[in-house]
Amino acid sequence: MAVEPVLALGRVVKQFGGRTALSGLDLTLRAGEVYALLGPNGAGKTTTINLILGFLKADAGEVRVCRIDAGTDPIAARARTAYIPEQVALYPGQSGLENLRYFATLAGLAIDRAEAETHLAAAGLAPEAWSRPASGYSKGMRQKVGIAIALARKTRLLLLDEPTSGLDPSAAAAFSGTVRAAAERGTAVLMATHDLYRVREMADRVGVLAGGRVAEEIDPRRYAHTDLERLYIARLSGAVT
């Protein structure tokens, strides 16, 4: 029996005014899979994530999260999704620990301090920063609190928008481990990124987004970093020409 996909996008079209951002995007993601959506700026990566989250509505096609139509019932779809935006914004007057517990509360989760500390530790935030106001956090530290929030939610789908942007190399490496661990627990992960190095480290499949659709799917483990980069550029050039 076929396993039901966690995320399924079918022939999704999205236009902004006269500009077509997505022109028939198909994408399927199963439990335990890490899918990297590669593409230049403006290729439609963030639009895809916004459609999955129900922040935007597709002009055509469908977006389903755990069989729920994200276009008609975005709240139910989001209840099954965790999300780390490119720029994680926190309440500056609260500590990382307080932010984590507050965002969890907003999502209807009550987590105690010990559990919150476990998630912050798993996300790689140094313990001495847990109780400091987030106003003094670097971008990487805020990103880690975002990761902790996503981990606390224990959802079937994790969406990452440029997740390693702003992380130092060791934090990015730790993050890769965290994502792989989540996938091994059965979480489906979709990440929009430019970071080919981390893509090869984390992703099971890579979709090159060009011309508003997945131009090609690649198994990143078959290629070295430099080959992957060359292939990516070639696909983009092909799409343009």
Partner: peptide, 11 residues
Amino acid sequence: GTLRLALGNGA
């Protein structure tokens, strides 16, 4: 930007 994080995480 906290609204994006909150809504995107199921609030």
